[in-house]
């Protein structure tokens, strides 16, 4: 019996497609800007994108850049391989960043071992180009507060 080569090993990490609601988000990421939605009714910032504002129910929003600075609000360390693109990375961390502007953003933290991550750690955004169309905002530790 010949050795079976799993085609799964050839599968790379999933790359998000540019849905209409996230077009401006990804355009910003390509420029090196982290964008969130700003409600035109009450000014509250939000992410992920929503059609209406849960604070005031206004339907108008525009995309605005934020500082990309924040702190680690929470994090986990993934040990199971749900997708073969991550098979070589387990255990890896997924973090919840609370941006200085108050919005939470789920991402990865680079340049640190998963078990060295702590809640409250100051971080800043970086941009990782994963395809011609898609650049992903990720974060790295930064000094001080």
């Amino acid at each position: 019996m010949s050795e079976q080569t799993s085609p799964a090993t050839a599968i790379s990490k999933p790359i998000p497609s540019i849905t209409p609601d996230l077009a401006e988000f990804f355009a910003g990421a390509r420029r090196g800007e982290l964008m969130v939605q700003k409600c035109q009714g009450c000014g509250v910032l939000r992410f992920p994108a929503h059609e209406t504002c849960a604070n005031c129910l206004d339907g108008q929003a525009k995309w605005v850049p934020v500082s990309g600075r924040g702190t680690i609000y929470s994090f986990n360390i993934m040990h199971q391989v749900y997708h073969p693109g991550f098979a070589g990375e387990v255990p890896y961390a997924v973090v919840v960043v609370q941006l200085d502007e108050g919005v939470k953003f789920i991402s990865n933290l680079v340049g640190i071992k998963p078990h060295d991550i702590r809640c409250g750690m100051p971080v800043e955004v970086i941009f990782e180009k994963v395809s011609e169309e898609i650049t992903l905002p990720k974060f790295r530790p930064r000094a001080g507060n």
């Binding site: 990490k13 999933p14 790359i15 998000p16 497609s17 996230l22 992920p48 993934m78 199971q80 749900y82 997708h83 693109g85 991550f86 990375e89 890896y92 997924v94 789920i106 991402s107 990865n108 994963v130 898609i134 992903l136 990720k138």
Partner: peptide, 12 residues
Amino acid sequence: ARGLNAAYGLFG
């Protein structure tokens, strides 16, 4: 595995 969460490896 669609969307941003999947791109960051957040599943389940």
